[in-house]
Simulated scan of single mutants.
Amino acid sequence: MKFLDAIEKRLLEELNPKVRLVLETGRYIVESGGKRLRPLFTVLTCGLCGGNPERALPLGVGLEYIHVASLLHDDIVDGAKTRRGKRSANLVFGNGVAVLTGDYMYAKALHLFSTYGNIEMIRVVSEAVMDMAEGQVLEISKVGDIISEEEYFRIIDGKTAVLFGACFGVGGLSANCKEWEELKKAGISIGRAFQLIDDLLDYAGDPQKLGKPVGNDLREGKCTYPLISVLGELNRDYVKRVLRGLEEPEALRQKVIELGGVEKTRERARRELERAREILNRFEDNEYKKEILKLVDFVVDRNI
């Protein structure tokens, strides 16, 4: 990918705290890897709209810092022990250092947007961060409960999709694109698809490729789309007992797979991506559009 090396380099260059432990923690999670979809979408969307992608590079880095900060905080909330096949940062450095490093990254993102962006971009991103926090709180409040499809999408829109939307919106704004709000909608649909596939992989992924065991959502009492899509064929009292930790979750995980929950989730992700493609195809063809559409295909077809 054309801009990936530049993104990786800038992610480390901008990480320049005065306290060494913050640097060590930040580098630990940044160097753990990641697909860098958010900064790539930001830069490519700028190019799609006829802008200079280099202008959007620090903005994409800021959006990736927001994503990384959310991972640091999520792992503390979830008590996670692994992240991308490595020990989680909170396990290595402690909860206090991890949460404060996350705070530093949020502030660094704001600094990048105040330096390279404009007030409209800051509004878009700050709204996304507020929605992310609300999505996470809503998810926590529903642990152990069966939730509706509507509640599920409220959760994943907050925790995942709105940040993808911000990437497309900021990319459009950096090119002075009048249709940036439509691009933001495309990003939200892509973010929805991304989270749907994440939730699918928690049921039927390869633990070695994922870098973590499957079945975590059920063990943590989270009701996600694969389960929601087949609830009508399951005993709800049994499902509640599993979600509340009163029954072993493995049998339910296997049953959801047998009933087609994985296929139904992938199909719903494909429908979300069709909405995104419909918007993207309104724009003229260029090399950046081609790369965006490749990444869109990757989102739904990936196995990690």
Rank of each mutant, 00 (worst) to 15 (best):
H67N: 04
H67P: 00
V68I: 15
A69K: 05
A69S: 14
S70T: 13
S70D: 02
S70C: 09
L71Q: 12
L71R: 03
L72H: 10
L72D: 02
L72F: 15
H73S: 07
D74C: 10
D74A: 12
D75M: 09
D75S: 10
D78Y: 05
A80Y: 11
K81C: 06
K81A: 09
T82C: 03
R83H: 10
R83E: 03
R83I: 06
R83W: 11
R84H: 06
K86W: 08
R87F: 03
R87H: 09
S88E: 02
A89L: 11
A89E: 02
N90T: 04
N90Q: 04
V92D: 07
F93W: 08
N95G: 12
V97L: 13
V97M: 10
V97F: 03
V99D: 01
V99R: 12
L100S: 13
L100W: 14
T101M: 02
G102W: 07
D103W: 08
D103V: 04
Y104H: 07
M105V: 00
Y106T: 03
Y106N: 13
A107E: 02
K108M: 08
A109M: 14
H111P: 00
L112K: 13
F113Y: 14
F113L: 15
S114E: 14
S114N: 10
T115K: 15
T115P: 00
Y116D: 04
Y116C: 03
G117F: 09
G117Q: 07
G117C: 07
G117D: 01
G117W: 11
N118R: 08
E120Q: 14
E120C: 05
E120G: 03
M121L: 12
M121V: 02
I122C: 04
R123A: 14
R123D: 13
V124K: 12
V124L: 12
V125R: 03
V125N: 04
V125M: 00
V125T: 07
S126R: 13
S126K: 10
S126W: 00
E127P: 00
A128R: 05
M130T: 15
D131M: 13
D131A: 15
D131C: 05
D131F: 05
M132E: 06
A133N: 06
A133S: 14
A133Y: 14
E134Q: 10
G135I: 04
G135N: 04
V137K: 12
V137M: 12
V137E: 10
L138C: 07
E139S: 09
E139D: 14
E139I: 06
I140F: 10
I140P: 00
S141L: 05
S141D: 11
K142S: 03
K142H: 14
V143N: 05
V143K: 15
V143E: 09
D145H: 15
D145T: 05
I146A: 05
I146M: 08
I146Y: 09
I147Y: 01
S148N: 08
E149H: 05
E150C: 02
E150Q: 11
E151C: 01
E151T: 15
F153P: 00
R154G: 12
I155S: 05
I155T: 09
D157L: 10
D157V: 12
G158T: 08
G158V: 10
K159T: 01
K159A: 06
A161L: 02
V162L: 02
V162K: 13
V162P: 00
V162I: 13
L163C: 01
L163A: 11
F164N: 09
G165T: 06
A166R: 07
F168A: 09
F168T: 01
